[in-house]
Amino acid sequence: MPSAPQNGSFTDLYVEIQQFYACQVQHLDALRAEEFAATFASDGVFHHSVDAPPAKGPGEIAAAIRAHQEHRYGSDPAQRRHWFNMLQVMPQDDGSIVTEYYALVLVTRPGDPVAVTAPACFVRDVLVRESGRLLNRERTVVADHTR
Protein backbone atom coordinates (compact mmCIF):
# COMPACT_ATOMS: atom_id res chain seq x y z
CA MET A 1 0.00 0.00 0.00
CA PRO A 2 1.35 3.48 -0.82
CA SER A 3 2.59 5.63 2.04
CA ALA A 4 0.49 8.46 3.43
CA PRO A 5 1.05 11.96 2.04
CA GLN A 6 2.98 14.41 4.21
CA ASN A 7 -0.07 16.56 5.04
CA GLY A 8 -3.03 14.44 6.05
CA SER A 9 -3.72 10.75 5.90
CA PHE A 10 -3.78 8.46 2.91
CA THR A 11 -7.47 7.88 3.62
CA ASP A 12 -8.14 11.63 3.38
CA LEU A 13 -6.31 11.77 0.05
CA TYR A 14 -8.19 8.73 -1.29
CA VAL A 15 -11.55 10.27 -0.36
CA GLU A 16 -10.54 13.61 -1.91
CA ILE A 17 -9.64 11.88 -5.17
CA GLN A 18 -12.93 9.94 -5.17
CA GLN A 19 -14.79 13.26 -4.74
CA PHE A 20 -12.74 14.81 -7.56
CA TYR A 21 -13.67 11.97 -9.92
CA ALA A 22 -17.34 12.04 -8.89
CA CYS A 23 -17.55 15.72 -9.82
CA GLN A 24 -15.51 15.26 -13.00
CA VAL A 25 -17.62 12.42 -14.41
CA GLN A 26 -20.87 14.20 -13.61
CA HIS A 27 -19.67 17.03 -15.87
CA LEU A 28 -18.79 14.47 -18.54
CA ASP A 29 -22.07 12.57 -18.29
CA ALA A 30 -24.09 15.80 -18.43
CA LEU A 31 -22.16 16.79 -21.59
CA ARG A 32 -20.65 19.85 -19.90
CA ALA A 33 -17.46 19.71 -21.93
CA GLU A 34 -16.01 23.01 -20.68
CA GLU A 35 -16.58 22.13 -17.03
CA PHE A 36 -15.03 18.70 -17.57
CA ALA A 37 -12.04 20.27 -19.34
CA ALA A 38 -11.62 22.75 -16.47
CA THR A 39 -10.69 19.78 -14.25
CA PHE A 40 -7.43 19.56 -16.23
CA ALA A 41 -4.35 21.70 -15.64
CA SER A 42 -3.69 24.45 -18.19
CA ASP A 43 -1.01 22.18 -19.69
CA GLY A 44 -3.10 19.04 -19.19
CA VAL A 45 -3.03 16.27 -21.77
CA PHE A 46 -5.89 13.86 -22.51
CA HIS A 47 -4.97 10.69 -24.44
CA HIS A 48 -8.54 9.62 -25.11
CA SER A 49 -8.32 7.42 -28.19
CA VAL A 50 -5.84 5.34 -30.14
CA ASP A 51 -7.40 6.86 -33.27
CA ALA A 52 -6.84 10.51 -32.35
CA PRO A 53 -3.93 12.65 -31.20
CA PRO A 54 -3.92 13.69 -27.55
CA ALA A 55 -5.89 16.81 -26.67
CA LYS A 56 -3.72 19.43 -24.96
CA GLY A 57 -5.09 22.10 -22.67
CA PRO A 58 -8.69 22.67 -21.58
CA GLY A 59 -9.78 24.18 -24.93
CA GLU A 60 -8.68 21.16 -26.97
CA ILE A 61 -9.99 18.77 -24.31
CA ALA A 62 -13.46 20.35 -24.40
CA ALA A 63 -13.44 20.22 -28.22
CA ALA A 64 -12.40 16.55 -28.15
CA ILE A 65 -15.24 15.71 -25.75
CA ARG A 66 -17.79 17.46 -27.97
CA ALA A 67 -16.41 15.81 -31.13
CA HIS A 68 -16.48 12.35 -29.52
CA GLN A 69 -20.07 12.83 -28.41
CA GLU A 70 -21.13 13.97 -31.90
CA HIS A 71 -19.21 11.18 -33.65
CA ARG A 72 -20.31 8.34 -31.39
CA TYR A 73 -23.85 9.40 -30.48
CA GLY A 74 -24.97 12.24 -32.75
CA SER A 75 -28.56 13.04 -31.81
CA ASP A 76 -29.05 9.69 -30.03
CA PRO A 77 -30.70 10.56 -26.66
CA ALA A 78 -28.63 7.93 -24.85
CA GLN A 79 -27.57 8.69 -21.29
CA ARG A 80 -23.97 7.79 -20.54
CA ARG A 81 -22.67 7.07 -17.05
CA HIS A 82 -18.96 6.71 -16.43
CA TRP A 83 -18.22 4.35 -13.56
CA PHE A 84 -14.71 4.44 -12.09
CA ASN A 85 -13.69 1.55 -9.85
CA MET A 86 -10.72 -0.40 -8.47
CA LEU A 87 -8.90 2.88 -7.84
CA GLN A 88 -5.23 2.78 -6.93
CA VAL A 89 -3.70 6.01 -5.58
CA MET A 90 0.08 6.38 -5.68
CA PRO A 91 1.54 9.63 -4.30
CA GLN A 92 4.83 10.55 -6.01
CA ASP A 93 7.94 12.20 -4.56
CA ASP A 94 7.39 15.30 -6.75
CA GLY A 95 3.97 15.92 -5.16
CA SER A 96 1.98 14.56 -8.11
CA ILE A 97 -0.36 11.62 -7.63
CA VAL A 98 -0.61 8.74 -10.09
CA THR A 99 -3.95 6.95 -10.14
CA GLU A 100 -4.97 3.86 -12.06
CA TYR A 101 -8.48 2.49 -12.29
CA TYR A 102 -11.03 0.71 -14.41
CA ALA A 103 -13.70 2.75 -16.15
CA LEU A 104 -16.95 1.42 -17.50
CA VAL A 105 -19.21 3.51 -19.68
CA LEU A 106 -22.82 2.47 -19.23
CA VAL A 107 -25.27 3.55 -21.92
CA THR A 108 -29.03 3.61 -21.38
CA ARG A 109 -31.57 4.69 -23.97
CA PRO A 110 -35.05 6.09 -23.23
CA GLY A 111 -37.61 3.32 -22.81
CA ASP A 112 -34.98 0.59 -22.47
CA PRO A 113 -34.16 -0.38 -18.88
CA VAL A 114 -31.09 -2.37 -19.94
CA ALA A 115 -27.78 -0.53 -19.73
CA VAL A 116 -25.10 -1.56 -22.20
CA THR A 117 -21.39 -1.38 -21.36
CA ALA A 118 -19.58 0.51 -24.09
CA PRO A 119 -16.61 0.34 -23.54
CA ALA A 120 -14.60 -0.98 -20.61
CA CYS A 121 -11.28 0.85 -20.16
CA PHE A 122 -8.09 1.08 -18.14
CA VAL A 123 -7.21 4.65 -17.15
CA ARG A 124 -4.00 6.16 -15.80
CA ASP A 125 -4.02 9.73 -14.50
CA VAL A 126 -1.39 12.06 -13.15
CA LEU A 127 -3.01 14.49 -10.74
CA VAL A 128 -1.40 17.71 -9.49
CA ARG A 129 -2.36 20.50 -7.14
CA GLU A 130 -2.65 24.06 -8.38
CA SER A 131 -3.66 26.66 -5.80
CA GLY A 132 -4.67 23.80 -3.50
CA ARG A 133 -7.01 22.29 -6.10
CA LEU A 134 -6.63 18.82 -7.63
CA LEU A 135 -6.36 18.83 -11.43
CA ASN A 136 -5.50 16.27 -14.09
CA ARG A 137 -2.10 16.85 -15.65
CA GLU A 138 -2.39 13.79 -17.84
CA ARG A 139 -5.00 11.12 -18.56
CA THR A 140 -4.44 8.06 -20.71
CA VAL A 141 -7.47 5.94 -21.54
CA VAL A 142 -7.05 2.53 -23.14
CA ALA A 143 -10.25 0.78 -24.17
CA ASP A 144 -10.02 -2.95 -23.51
CA HIS A 145 -11.09 -3.81 -27.05
CA THR A 146 -8.07 -1.93 -28.46
CA ARG A 147 -5.44 -3.83 -26.47
Score class of each variant (00 low, 15 high):
residue 45 V to D: 06
residue 120 A to D: 14
residue 26 Q to S: 10
residue 96 S to Y: 06
residue 129 R to N: 11
residue 39 T to A: 06
residue 137 R to P: 05
residue 94 D to L: 03
residue 17 I to N: 01
residue 145 H to Y: 15
residue 50 V to T: 09
residue 19 Q to W: 04
residue 49 S to Q: 03
residue 48 H to Y: 10
residue 15 V to C: 07
residue 144 D to E: 15
residue 103 A to D: 15
residue 76 D to E: 05
residue 73 Y to C: 07
residue 22 A to L: 05
residue 79 Q to V: 05
residue 68 H to R: 14
residue 131 S to F: 11
residue 140 T to H: 10
residue 138 E to R: 07
residue 143 A to E: 13
residue 9 S to Y: 03
residue 2 P to C: 00
residue 13 L to K: 05
residue 61 I to E: 01
residue 63 A to M: 11
residue 57 G to M: 06
residue 7 N to E: 15
residue 118 A to C: 11
residue 34 E to A: 06
residue 62 A to C: 08
residue 111 G to Q: 08
residue 57 G to N: 01
residue 43 D to L: 08
residue 44 G to F: 03
residue 90 M to Q: 15
residue 125 D to Y: 05
residue 58 P to W: 01
residue 25 V to P: 04
residue 10 F to N: 04
residue 64 A to R: 02
residue 8 G to E: 01
residue 79 Q to G: 08
residue 33 A to P: 03
residue 52 A to R: 12
residue 135 L to G: 00
residue 51 D to Y: 10
residue 8 G to P: 02
residue 50 V to G: 15
residue 85 N to W: 14
residue 75 S to F: 12
residue 134 L to R: 00
residue 78 A to D: 05
residue 39 T to E: 02
residue 40 F to I: 01
residue 93 D to P: 11
residue 120 A to T: 07
residue 24 Q to W: 09
residue 67 A to Q: 13
residue 90 M to S: 14
residue 27 H to S: 09
residue 74 G to Q: 06
residue 95 G to K: 09
residue 117 T to E: 10
residue 53 P to M: 03
residue 132 G to S: 03
residue 67 A to M: 08
residue 61 I to W: 00
residue 106 L to S: 02
residue 61 I to Q: 00
residue 68 H to M: 15
residue 42 S to H: 12
residue 48 H to Q: 13
residue 133 R to M: 09
residue 99 T to N: 08
residue 142 V to W: 05
residue 27 H to K: 07
residue 146 T to D: 14
residue 20 F to N: 07
residue 15 V to A: 07
residue 68 H to T: 14
residue 25 V to D: 08
residue 147 R to M: 13
residue 11 T to G: 11
residue 96 S to K: 10
residue 57 G to T: 05
residue 95 G to R: 08
residue 136 N to S: 14
residue 91 P to M: 02
residue 35 E to V: 03
residue 2 P to E: 06
residue 70 E to H: 14
residue 102 Y to D: 13
residue 101 Y to V: 03
residue 109 R to T: 04
residue 47 H to S: 10
residue 56 K to N: 13
residue 57 G to S: 06
residue 119 P to H: 04
residue 108 T to L: 07
residue 98 V to L: 13
residue 130 E to I: 03
residue 116 V to Y: 06
residue 55 A to L: 03
residue 9 S to M: 08
residue 70 E to I: 03
residue 83 W to R: 12
residue 82 H to P: 04
residue 58 P to D: 06
residue 13 L to M: 02
residue 74 G to Y: 03
residue 21 Y to S: 03
residue 112 D to T: 08
residue 76 D to V: 00
residue 43 D to Y: 12
residue 88 Q to V: 10
residue 11 T to L: 12
residue 109 R to E: 04
residue 1 M to L: 13
residue 32 R to F: 06
residue 62 A to M: 00
residue 110 P to V: 01
residue 139 R to K: 09
residue 131 S to E: 13
residue 120 A to N: 12
residue 90 M to I: 15
residue 38 A to W: 05
residue 29 D to A: 05
residue 86 M to P: 15
residue 5 P to I: 01
residue 10 F to A: 09
residue 94 D to M: 04
residue 56 K to W: 07
residue 94 D to K: 07
residue 128 V to W: 00
residue 136 N to V: 12
residue 114 V to G: 10
residue 123 V to W: 08
residue 20 F to E: 07
residue 28 L to Q: 02
residue 130 E to G: 15
residue 66 R to Q: 10
residue 73 Y to V: 05
